[in-house]
Amino acid sequence: MKADFCCSILTENIVEAGRKGFSVIPFKHEDDLYTNDLYSFLLQFRSMDFAADNKCIMAQRAIAYCPWCGTELHQLTRINEAGLEYYAKRNQKLII
Score class of each variant (00 low, 15 high):
residue 43 L to N: 03
residue 10 L to F: 12
residue 95 I to R: 15
residue 85 E to G: 05
residue 52 A to P: 02
residue 47 S to F: 14
residue 81 E to Y: 10
residue 93 K to E: 09
residue 32 D to H: 13
residue 41 F to I: 04
residue 75 Q to W: 02
residue 16 E to F: 01
residue 91 N to M: 07
residue 47 S to L: 15
residue 41 F to N: 01
residue 77 T to S: 08
residue 15 V to T: 11
residue 93 K to W: 05
residue 65 Y to P: 01
residue 21 G to L: 05
residue 19 R to K: 15
residue 6 C to Q: 01
residue 85 E to D: 14
residue 83 G to Y: 09
residue 6 C to P: 01
residue 42 L to V: 12
residue 40 S to K: 13
residue 71 T to C: 06
residue 85 E to F: 02
residue 12 E to P: 01
residue 12 E to R: 13
residue 50 F to D: 07
residue 58 M to S: 13
residue 8 S to P: 07
residue 41 F to V: 03
residue 85 E to V: 04
residue 32 D to G: 15
residue 30 E to H: 08
residue 26 P to K: 02
residue 5 F to S: 00
residue 87 Y to V: 00
residue 20 K to D: 02
residue 43 L to M: 15
residue 44 Q to I: 04
residue 26 P to W: 03
residue 78 R to S: 08
residue 32 D to E: 13
residue 67 P to M: 07
residue 5 F to H: 00
residue 15 V to S: 06
residue 46 R to H: 08
residue 62 A to L: 15
residue 21 G to D: 06
residue 93 K to N: 08
residue 67 P to T: 08
residue 80 N to E: 10
residue 93 K to H: 15
residue 70 G to Y: 07
residue 84 L to N: 00
residue 88 A to V: 04
residue 80 N to G: 09
residue 46 R to E: 00
residue 62 A to Q: 11
residue 37 D to N: 15
residue 56 C to S: 11
residue 89 K to H: 09
residue 48 M to S: 07
residue 73 L to D: 00
residue 81 E to P: 04
residue 29 H to F: 14
residue 66 C to I: 05
residue 94 L to K: 05
residue 16 E to L: 13
residue 28 K to F: 04
residue 68 W to Y: 12
residue 96 I to P: 09
residue 92 Q to P: 04
residue 82 A to D: 12
